[in-house]
C-alpha cells in the first residue's frame, strides 16, 4: 500500500500523556486543513488519530506519531504512523473486531478508525510493539468501509 513518495516534511510527536493526545488532535487537524481536507474528512481523520493515539498510550505504554503529508500527481493526502514498543497485540483479528476491548473503552478503536480512513495498515509483534499506519486522501475515493456490516 501507499507506494508514493512522501513529502520530506515528516513531523514526529510524542504520545505519553492525555495532554499529548490533545496536542496530536490539534496538529492532525491543522495539517489536514492546510492540505485542503474538507471539514467532514478532517473530523474523521482527527477522530481516527485520537482513537489510535489513545491505543498507543493505553495499550502500548506510550510511543510517538509521525505525520507525513503525501503527494501523488494532483492528489494530496496525509499519512499517520503510530508507533509503540509495548507488549504488542497477540490476536490481531480479535483486536480488529467491533466490541473487543481490553482497555475499558467501547472496543471500537481499531475497527472504527479503519472505517474512517482510506488506507489502514497494522503490524504488531508480541513483546516488540505495534505500528499502525493510516492514510487519507483529499476528496479521494470513498473509504472502502472494510469491516462495516
Amino acid at each position: 500500500m501507499m507506494q508514493v513518495s512522501p513529502d520530506t516534511a515528516t513531523t514526529s510527536l510524542p504520545i505519553g500523556s492525555d495532554a499529548d493526545l490533545a496536542w496530536v488532535r490539534q496538529r492532525v487537524r491543522q495539517t489536514a486543513a492546510e492540505l485542503g481536507f474538507g471539514l467532514v474528512q478532517q473530523t474523521k481523520l482527527v477522530t481516527a488519530a485520537s482513537e489510535l493515539a489513545r491505543n498507543t498510550l493505553v495499550h502500548g505504554g506510550g510511543g510517538h506519531l509521525e505525520i507525513t503529508p503525501l503527494t501523488t500527481g494532483p492528489n494530496r493526502g496525509l499519512r499517520l504512523t503510530f508507533l509503540d514498543t509495548g507488549p504488542g497485540i497477540r490476536d490481531i483479528e480479535q483486536a480488529m473486531t467491533d466490541g473487543f476491548t481490553t482497555g475499558g473503552g467501547l472496543g471500537l478503536g481499531l475497527s472504527g478508525a479503519k472505517r474512517l480512513v482510506n488506507e489502514f495498515d497494522f503490524d504488531s509483534r508480541p513483546g516488540e510493539g505495534t505500528t499502525v499506519t493510516i492514510a487519507a486522501w483529499v476528496s479521494g475515493l470513498p473509504s472502502p468501509r472494510a469491516g462495516a456490516g
Binding site: 467532514v40 467501547l106 478508525a113 472505517r115 468501509r145 462495516a148
Partner: peptide, 14 residues
C-alpha cells in the same frame, strides 16, 4: 452536535 461529528460517530459505529 455538529453535523461532521454526527457523520463521524455513525461511521465509527458509535
Amino acid at each position: 452536535m455538529r453535523p461532521a461529528v454526527a457523520i463521524t460517530l455513525a461511521e465509527l459505529g458509535l
